[in-house]
Write a protein that binds this DNA or RNA. Structure first.
Length: 211
DNA sequence: TGCCAGGCCGGGT
DNA sequence: ACCCGGCATGGC
């Protein structure tokens, strides 16, 4: 089992190569993407982010000032747009209340940052960890639906395994390094999209076949 | 056409 | 402590 966590990484890296994640030009953009992609296809998220870019709204100041209804309209393609507009507002407000800049907000230890993110309404464990790893670039392992499904398919977890349980599986076995956690999660998403979607009965050519 | 996508919250048992 | 409905668009 312990061995398999490393084996899976090696196979995926050999198969796909480095992934250059997260999609996003700046930490702020990455953070926004982390919220918008909640239970949502990344393709839709890109449309929403393009709208924000086109409206020149990718700064904390602008996002703090925009009306929620207007924000909702811009992020409409990402789905749950009213909900997510509120969540983005909560996030931006929390940051600007506590810090001068995004860098300042990130300039605390990992656990403190995680606690502060989880205290924000609309930020759960996956979104928090995505922000910590990909925007703040601190070493934390991100667990998502693909991670769960892939491990389940290889009998490495039970179906009812929770977030922390799955996260520990990785962090217990891997060196605590940002680039490694970054690559590993990105690779899991890629192989998930290719071979481990919810409706994908055939895994014939999955690189993880036999693990 | 229907089902799915890189969650999370709140209310009901 | 679980369980479940709600939230919503675009793509295959």
């Amino acid at each position: 089992m312990a061995h398999k966590i490393s084996e899976i990484y090696q196979i995926l890296f050999n198969h796909y190569g480095p992934q250059h994640w997260w999609p996003g030009d700046t930490p702020l953009e990455i953070m926004i993407g982390a919220v918008l992609t909640q239970n949502t296809n990344w393709q839709n998220v890109e449309k929403a982010i393009d709208n924000l870019k086109a409206a020149n709204l990718l700064s904390l100041i602008d996002l703090a000032e925009i009306a929620p209804g207007h924000l909702a309209e811009l992020i409409r393609p990402s789905g749950y747009y009213n909900l997510k507009a509120g969540r983005l507002k909560n996030l931006v407000t929390a940051i600007t209340d506590q810090s001068e800049t995004l860098d300042d907000f990130f300039a605390v230890d990992r656990e403190t940052l995680r606690d502060r993110l989880l205290a924000i309404k609309g930020i759960g464990p996956e979104t928090a960890d995505s922000i910590i790893l990909y925007a703040a670039e601190k070493p934390i392992f991100v667990v998502d639906a693909y991670t769960h499904r892939i491990l389940l398919r290889h009998d490495l977890i039970w179906d009812d395994a929770d977030y922390n349980e799955i996260q520990s599986l990785f962090t217990d076995q891997l060196e605590e390094e940002t680039p490694l956690f970054n690559e590993y999660h990105a690779l899991l998403v890629q192989v998930g999209k290719d071979f481990c979607r919810k409706t994908n009965p055939r895994c014939d050519s999955c690189p993880l076949l036999g693990v």
